[in-house]
Design a protein around this nucleic acid. Structure first.
Lengths: 180, 180
DNA sequence: GAAGATTGATCCCTCAATCTTG
DNA sequence: CAAGATTGAGGGATCAATCTTC
């Protein structure tokens, strides 16, 4: 450490790390810019809306939604408040547990996320999947899962956080939010 | 897109993408928290200090330093101002080009980054390299480079942004030839 | 006009404090 | 006391506007 700052990384590791570190800086910024320009929402707001859109009745507890978006309840609470002001999400109390709160996607919110989804997916495909071979797709998934296990040892498994798309567009319930 | 929000991604791709997307959210946060708790600086501040520490005379133009930290000149300018207030970096005018500004690491700044480096490297090893096989190290580097090319097509090559450690702790103003 | 650099308004995230319910 | 959730203060990133020099 006296002569070289990154002495504990070999030359090969250093190069692999820099490529990855740059990606960690650049890719989220690119996805963020794309969502802001194309749809006018943040990437994280999209994650929240998309997550809700694929849940039964478009509803999920704040606690579980935070897990499914790799976030914290605090951050989620702030974002849901913003989404509520835009009329895309509303809060509902949990009748079975007074501590719990449901986040519910509104009809307007569903329309928003349905308009945003194909553009976002296309961008992910363009930036992440198109440059890679199919073997590399799987390698990326495997590698990411392994690192994630080290980063968040007690976190939920990724497979358990992928919303199942079956329930989309299920029950037409209450349509419009109250505010005008 | 009417039935399923992420219809354009196959089930396999969806799982790979979620694992990677979660990593994009969790790993930077983990590195950030680690640096703040252990050293009291942000991860990006460390990148700046470490980059400077490995340049000849611990000096680099703002423009080039921004490239080497996958950043923008604007962000870098704000950060360097903060580092200047802490006494770790100082600005110097470029005698050859009135538009250009040099960022120079101070002795205190060098001591700081030298104290921080082994801890940061150890954390990177623990979170990124230890969970992977050597083959996966290379795969990660290759994959990251490929995606980066799609994200920043006109950006500098990663190899050109890795500070060469040869020059560290150099005393006099000597122009060093690059090793072939 | 183009390139290097700085500034500041605005937005968002983080984190600790707080509250309520189980 | 533990778990779910909210709030607000403080800090950092973004982006457009601006300035200077080539």
């Amino acid at each position: 450490m006296d002569r070289e700052v990154d002495a504990r990384l070999s030359a090969e590791e250093l190069q692999d790390w820099y490529a990855f570190a740059f990606l960690l800086l650049r890719l989220p910024a690119a996805l963020e810019t794309h969502m802001q320009r194309e749809v006018g929402i943040s990437h994280f707001e999209y994650l929240v809306l998309a997550g809700l859109s694929m849940m039964p009745r478009h509803t999920q507890r704040m606690r579980d939604l935070a897990d499914n978006t790799a976030s914290t309840v605090s951050r989620l609470s702030n974002v849901v408040s913003r989404l509520e002001k835009r009329g895309w999400v509303r809060r509902e109390p949990d009748p079975d547990d007074g501590r719990s709160t449901f986040a519910v996607l509104t009809a307007t919110g569903l329309a928003t996320v349905e308009a945003a989804a194909p553009r976002h997916t296309a961008e992910v495909r363009r930036l992440v999947f198109d440059p890679l071979t199919k073997a590399q797709h799987r390698q990326l998934g495997t590698i990411a899962t392994r690192i994630l296990r080290a980063v968040v040892p007690d976190g939920p498994r990724v497979e358990d956080c992928i919303p199942t798309p079956h329930q989309h567009r299920q029950t037409p319930e209450i349509e419009e939010p109250v505010h005008g």
